[in-house]
Structures are given as structure tokens and as C-alpha cells.
């Protein structure tokens, strides 16, 4: 029985490491791989934020792992106004690149961060100086 259980464990790992299956389950074609292509560390979505019409940086509490980063990314990427989402785990912040002509007010950003499961601390639109 013990050997059977170990065999089952090995089988589970083999399922996880089967590339074709993993691709299918994760629908890799829809994923943004730019974060793996020579980008700066800690970035979830590295579509060049400099190309965005407006950059908004939000300081967020609770960002401690990749699952957290993915949650924030998934929620904001669904927004029409958002062109790119960058999550910086080291500094606990997300950087939103907004599309030209689009806007997203502070209240909406805070609501989306709470919807993701995290807490908004502050928002910097880079125009306070």
C-alpha cells in the first residue's frame, strides 16, 4: 500500500510536469510572456509602460507572493482603460499604464484593488511635483 501511495505521488508530479498538459490547463497562448523576456525583475506585465498615455502607481498592502501579483494583474487587465499592469513585489506597488484618452479615477482603482483582495495605501499619478 505504501508503495502504491508513493507511485500515486510520482504520477501526480508527472501530470504537473507534462508540458502539453500544463500548456492546455494554463492556456499559455493567452498569457503574457513578456515578463520572462529580459524584463526587469518583479514585473508581472512588462508591456512598456512608457508607451502608455498615463502612468498611475498605486501603493498596495498585502502583496507577498506570485499568486497575489496574478490576482491584481487579472483584475486590472479586464479593464478597458488599462493597457499594462506591472506588479512590483519588492516595493509593494502596482504600476498601471492607461490607454490614450482613457482615465481611471482613484475610487475605481481602490475598488479594483479591494476586489482583488488587497488594500490600497496611496496613488501617485506623477503630477504632484
Amino acid at each position: 500500500m505504501k508503495l502504491n501511495k508513493i507511485a500515486f505521488g510520482i504520477l501526480a508530479l508527472s501530470v504537473l510536469t507534462t508540458p502539453a498538459l500544463a500548456d492546455e490547463m494554463m492556456d499559455h497562448s493567452k498569457m503574457d510572456h513578456s515578463a520572462h523576456e529580459g524584463a526587469a525583475p518583479d514585473l508581472v506585465d512588462t508591456k512598456d509602460v512608457a508607451d502608455s498615455a498615463q502612468i498611475v502607481t498605486a501603493k498596495v498592502n498585502g502583496l507577498v507572493c506570485d499568486f497575489c501579483a496574478q490576482a491584481v494583474r487579472k483584475v486590472f487587465k479586464k479593464q478597458d482603460a488599462v493597457e499594462s499592469v506591472t506588479v512590483d513585489l519588492d516595493n509593494g506597488q502596482i504600476v498601471l499604464g492607461l490607454k490614450a484618452g482613457a482615465n481611471m479615477d482613484d475610487e475605481t482603482i481602490g475598488k479594483l484593488i479591494r476586489k482583488s483582495g488587497y488594500s490600497l495605501v496611496s496613488i501617485d499619478r506623477g503630477d504632484d511635483a
Binding site: 501511495k5 508513493i6 505521488g9 508530479l13 500544463a22 490547463m25 494554463m26 496574478q70
Partner: peptide, 12 residues
């Protein structure tokens, strides 16, 4: 118990 633990999680 000399038994294996093996867990996995995937989010998608």
C-alpha cells in the same frame, strides 16, 4: 510513518 507527501496547485 515513512510516507510521502506530494501536493500541487494550479491557478488559471
Amino acid at each position: 510513518t515513512e510516507e510521502l507527501l506530494a501536493n500541487w496547485i494550479i491557478r488559471f
